[in-house]
Amino acid sequence: MERSEVRGLYLLAAFLACAYAMPFVVGAWTGTVRLDERWLGNLATVVIGGIMQGGVYAMFAVGLTLIFGVMRIINAAHGEMVMMGAYLTWVCFFYLGVDPLVALVLTLPVAFLFGVAVQKLLLNAVVGAPELTGLLITFGLGLTMIYAVELIFTTDFRTIPYAPGTVRLTNTIAVGQNRVISFVMAVVISTGVYLFLKLNRLGKAIRATALNAEVAMVCGIDVRRVYLVTTGLAAALAVAGGALVSIQFGFNPETGVLYTLQAFAIIILGGRGHYLGALIGGLMLAVLENLVSLMVPNGTAMVELAAYGLMIFVLLIRPGGLMGVKEG
């Protein structure tokens, strides 16, 4: 490692320490930090809750990072695919009476095919074009999806009542059952995708294409097919993410925008196109958000400020993201 790189890492560590200390400092200043048992219980609860939430966010952010890594396309409709997942789950739950987790068996293949169609009809036309072209075309796709869903389901907020109980770890630490279930599912799915990329033939081809599409081509990899599978997989991850957030939070056709931003922040933080980076980015972001909302007065309004502030400063110190490699 070069000296400047080592210095950069120290700087990053110092900055991250400050970032995570900030809510505590503000909390101490305004008196929301009380070192009694109940408060410590709350602290543990939000940290655990953050990790659980982060796991789910990270899982669908991986979809975004895959598309970017393989095709250099920034999918601005990723959050809308998450939203679509929430609605698909909702339809399965209320109209077909299918358990939201069992519904994945139905929704994931649909999502995969949707991804394949998007690739064939839209993205194939813009692979290799300047990044803005892909961004614009997916932005258009996102808007179309929002209005299509609005047309069918109106703008009303929907919720899926599912596993409303809480899991009590100690007297003071409790986590919602639905969160635990979502987190476990997210871990299972993320691990599955990771193993697929690491061990499976096609998975390796996806990684190879992401590393260097031209070389992949002369290694006999059918890059077009890799593109199809990648977008299908990314859509499936987004829809799975949608299913897992739908049993925790309310949603309407426009919530997708928030998830797009969230996923962006996560992959930029973690390192564009980097699988593990996305996972780490997801956890870091969600934990910080939860700390802020616990300790900073009027915290819920400050959550996004903290999240995007973190992203911007990490980028300033390390332009490639946490796990990113130097460009070129």
Partner: peptide, 26 residues
Amino acid sequence: VTRTFQVTRIFREMTVLENMLSVTGL
């Protein structure tokens, strides 16, 4: 028909064996 490149192009973030097995269509 296969080739190598003027400036070596291997997959730097894959192991030697993975580089070999990234070749598909065998």
